Amino acid sequence: MTVPGAVVEVDRLVREFTVREPVPGRRLRRRARRVRAVDEMTFTVGPGEAVGYIGANGAGKSTTIKMLAGILVPTSGSVRTCGLEPIGERRTLSRRIGVVFGQRSQLWWDLPLSESFAILGAIHRLEPDALASRRAELVEELELADFWSTPVRQLSLGQRRRAEVAAALLHRPELVVLDEPTIGLDVLSKQRLREFLVHERRTRGTTLLLTTHDMGDVERLCERVLVVDHGRLAYDGTLSGLGATVAAERILVVDLAEPVADLQVPGTRHLGSEGEGVRQRLAFDPATTTAAAVLTAVQTRAEVRDLSVAEPDVEDVVRRLWARNRAVGAGGRPGSA
């Protein structure tokens, strides 16, 4: 399969691992078993797209990304990234993609952040003026100045995440792959990072592939969603289409000025109350109403002091999707919209 201009091309991609597990009743014996982490995966990502690649832990997301980056060799099938064969052209590919792995850092643990960026600039062969300009932009936009001279090992989780994203974007890659980019960030830092990624796509045409358990990230950053479960592609379409497919609900949590009886708001389900009715939880379907509409209805019944909206849980979305597929006789095979 060759798709002209595609940034990512995956065709019937398979990756298997051999695991050794205990033999029942034989404590010192182990037997080998082949596990298929990625199972006949096929999809493409076009230039400038923002794609959410979501699924439960162990679904095969990280394995797929490692094959896209040339870290793992596919068992069968084919993959091309930025028009290149990842394994055979890995060095060239590394200058055209930026990757942030959840458990793997590209920063030097004992060096100040500033020195890590100087080394990365040399690795990517950036001209001094280009490096200085890009570094200044990233420091300002991702608010790195306060810990720019601090060793990486002394940074908080949120500070490291912002620094990792900045490092992945330093050389202005065509494709950016981010694994849980907003984990550990406070609300304001999370919003700032999302705004910066939107700006990068709008001004540079950067292609974004995002793996996350935060559906808020997907909703605000991605136009398309790929759902993977047990190594198979379960859904490829829009986020709104996914919500309609699985009837994923959002939850509005309201803190009221004084206790009231359980709120009965049209278009919602009352999930529970705390503090004799001071805090109440209402579930609603985003395909049929909005958080703003629900809040307006609540305010006609009681004074609201604070609120929050909980996004659907990724594991719940995947579970509902596969339950639906089985119910319509798909036998657990992928669905799309």
Rank of each mutant, 00 (worst) to 15 (best):
L155R: 09
S156M: 06
S156R: 13
S156N: 12
S156Q: 09
L157Q: 12
L157P: 01
L157S: 10
L157G: 05
G158R: 12
Q159M: 15
Q159D: 13
R160D: 09
R160Q: 15
R160E: 12
R161F: 03
R162L: 13
R162Y: 08
A163T: 06
V165E: 06
V165M: 06
A167K: 00
A167Q: 01
L169N: 05
L170T: 05
L170A: 10
L170Y: 07
H171V: 01
P173G: 04
P173W: 01
E174N: 04
E174W: 02
L175S: 02
V176L: 09
V176I: 07
V176T: 02
V177R: 02
V177L: 15
E180P: 11
E180V: 12
P181H: 14
T182G: 09
T182Q: 10
G184F: 14
L185S: 07
D186H: 11
V187F: 08
V187R: 08
L188P: 05
L188Y: 12
L188R: 15
Q191C: 07
R192G: 02
R192F: 03
R192A: 14
L193M: 15
L193A: 10
L193T: 10
R194K: 15
R194A: 08
R194Y: 11
E195W: 05
F196M: 04
F196I: 01
V198H: 01
H199P: 00
H199W: 05
E200N: 03
E200D: 03
E200Q: 13
R201N: 07
R201M: 05
R201C: 01
R202H: 07
R202C: 00
R202D: 02
T203C: 03
T203E: 10
G205F: 08
T207Q: 00
L209M: 09
L209Y: 03
L209K: 03
L209V: 06
L210Q: 08
L210I: 06
L210F: 10
H213D: 11
H213L: 13
H213M: 10
D214M: 07
D214Y: 08
D214H: 05
D214A: 12
D214V: 05
M215S: 07
G216H: 08
G216I: 04
D217P: 05
V218H: 05
V218G: 06
V218A: 14
V218C: 10
V218L: 14
E219L: 06
E219M: 04
E219A: 13
E219T: 04
R220H: 14
R220Q: 13
R220I: 02
L221W: 02
C222P: 08
C222N: 06
E223C: 03
E223G: 15
E223Y: 04
R224S: 04
R224C: 05
V225A: 15
L226W: 10
V227Q: 09
H230E: 15
H230P: 03
R232V: 12
R232G: 07
L233G: 10
L233C: 12
A234Q: 15
A234H: 09
A234N: 08
Y235A: 03
Y235V: 02
D236Y: 09
G237Q: 09
G237F: 08
T238N: 04
T238A: 12
S240Q: 14
S240T: 13
G241I: 06
G241E: 14
G241N: 11
L242H: 00
G243I: 04
T245S: 15
T245G: 13
